[in-house]
Simulated scan of single mutants.
Amino acid sequence: MSVTPQDPKDLRPPTDPRRRVLLTGATGGIGSLLSERLDADYELVLHGHTAPSGETAERFHLADLTDEAAVAALMDGVDTVIHMAGASAPTSSWEDVLAANIIGLRNVLEGARTRGVRRIVYASSNHLMGMYDKLGEWPVYPTTLPRADSLYGVSKAFGEALGRFYHDTYGLDFIALRIGWSTDDPDDRDIDLLHAMWLSEDDTEQVVRCAIEADVTFGLYYAISDNPNRRWDVTNTMLELGYRPKDRYPEHPGEHEDPDQPTPPDWPNNS
């Protein structure tokens, strides 16, 4: 019996159009993608350092993450925060990650707590576990102990721990997505490790939608497409969030990827 393939759009979880969703870092790479793709289904409030042309003051807000009062003011009437803002380079300095990723995240969580926000969807990172990648010690599971490859990765470990504290102590939903290599062109870099952790634009949208709508109230989840030779377990992402990755690098398994290729010696600087 033949089976009609399911349209990827049918894999999206049902959305509640009444949800008011704050997207921090809306002008970044992933933030820009999400601001375009989620706009039809949610009442989006956009945040960034500089406002893109055409956005109104009702939708776009400027706020320094280290300004606790300014961050809290973003939360009025918000159901869910998708927290994408912060220092995002593995080469980020201590001063950068301290301000944006540690103090900034604390202000986001505290503002959410005091303003009655239901859920935080947190942009964690593969670099939280990147030393396993550097040493080739795979597979890596969500339950594996953190082993950061950079101060940036350390800041993401802190973020997950702080999110757990706010969940356990205050009941705030906290969904951490350990985002892989998100790009629209995976052929831009000829590094097999990056190809293995590629997260396509469509899968980025899908996993964030799942994180907004899933019934689970806390979890740590890898967000990676269905790539051959993937070294990071997405089982709980699929079972608990309902994520079904539909893209893979390459389309034909193993065509370009060598599972025995060593990690680049300057990892994570080139990631």
Rank of each mutant, 00 (worst) to 15 (best):
P186Q: 12
S225P: 12
E160N: 01
G159M: 02
Y221D: 06
F174Y: 04
E201W: 14
F174D: 05
L172E: 05
K156M: 01
A161T: 10
R164K: 09
R164M: 03
F174S: 03
D190P: 05
I212H: 05
D184S: 13
E205H: 11
G159E: 06
R178V: 05
G219Q: 11
I191A: 14
I191T: 14
F158S: 04
D215I: 08
I175C: 00
T204M: 13
D184L: 04
Y221P: 12
A161V: 06
Y152I: 04
D187S: 13
D202K: 13
G180E: 02
K156Q: 04
G153H: 01
D173E: 06
A176D: 04
Y170L: 01
D192A: 09
D203W: 04
P186W: 09
A196G: 05
L194Y: 10
D185Q: 12
A214S: 14
F218G: 01
Y166Q: 02
R189A: 15
P186V: 09
M197G: 09
T217C: 02
V154N: 06
D203S: 05
A214V: 08
L220C: 14
E213A: 15
T217L: 00
A157M: 12
V216S: 11
Y170F: 10
L177G: 01
D187G: 15
A214Y: 03
F158H: 11
P186N: 12
A196C: 15
T183L: 11
L193D: 11
T217W: 09
V207D: 03
S155V: 07
E201H: 15
F158D: 07
G219A: 03
A161Y: 04
Y170D: 10
Y170N: 05
Y221R: 03
G219Y: 12
G180S: 02
T217H: 12
S155I: 08
Y152E: 02
T217I: 00
S182D: 06
D215F: 03
S225N: 14
D190Y: 02
F174E: 02
G159W: 02
L172M: 02
A176T: 08
L172H: 02
D215W: 02
G163Q: 02
